[in-house]
Design a protein around this nucleic acid. Structure first.
Lengths: 132, 132
DNA sequence: CATACACTTAACCATATGGTTAAGTATGTA
DNA sequence: TACATACTTAACCATATGGTTAAGTGTATG
């Protein structure tokens, strides 16, 4: 009945919900993928302990967003963009509906004269900035 | 030092991390925004208790994604797409980097002959399906 | 006015999350 | 071989999350 997409979206959005992990993801995205980024380099901007970083990396790894490989005694991390692409697809898919709905709502408010429906909807800026 | 974007991205991604909440968001997106969707209608597809639904709605509300208004004894819910648009922007912004990186990696693998670097990267499908 | 309806709030429970310190493991180096 | 480096694992703690049942709260209706 309820369309269940699978555990990956859960894991991906959950992974992105933490600012430390988003910063890690951002850093990985900016890095040279042939080199990867060592765990130490990833940890450097934060003043949390190595185990905390290790846990964050495991969360990202469990979500399929990060792969590690040993290179001597450092571990080089790289992004796998597939899960985030799926998350992006989910959002973009539904944004189609939302944008449609906002149009419909705008029409409705116009017909109602804006008096009967004080909804406080603001169909502002970013609605189209990232979209097709 | 670490660019802190604010609590809203945390709350938005966290809200989207739960399948029940994603289904609620999807349902709200498909609904007529002039009508809204009552809490009971939202709860109907799930076999969890009303308080559980109420909590999910509060999470969405706290993330700024949902607004409620009383209409008699029902509460009509509507989406506010702004937070999800911001989340979408975050993802799309970083996807630019990732796509760039994947290109760079492809070049690297080509130069390396694909033997020295068994990275297991799959630069597959959805990378461009949702984008502009 | 009394009762049913559509919820929410309160209290509670189990598990997950994000952090810590302490101890272990694997690799490079003196 | 011994030691330092770069982590991870284990154990623990506080708080958050997702669920429950029981008890409110506000509104329609007999």
């Amino acid at each position: 009945m309820v369309k269940y997409v699978g555990p990956s979206l859960d894991a991906t959005f959950s992974a992105l919900a933490d600012p430390t992990r988003r910063a890690i993801v951002a850093r990985l995205g900016e890095a040279d993928p042939s080199r990867g980024v060592s765990v130490g380099e990833l940890a450097e901007p934060f003043d949390i302990s190595p185990p905390a970083i290790s846990k964050h990396l495991r969360v990202l790894e469990h979500a399929g967003m990060l792969t590690q490989q040993r290179d001597g005694r450092v571990r080089r991390c790289r992004l796998d963009p597939k899960p985030i692409n799926e998350a992006s697809q989910w959002i973009e898919h539904h944004r189609q509906f939302w944008n449609h709905q906002l149009d419909a709502l705008a029409g409705f408010l116009e017909n109602a004269g804006g008096d009967d429906a004080g909804f406080g909807i603001d169909s502002n800026g970013p609605g189209e900035e990232g979209g097709p």
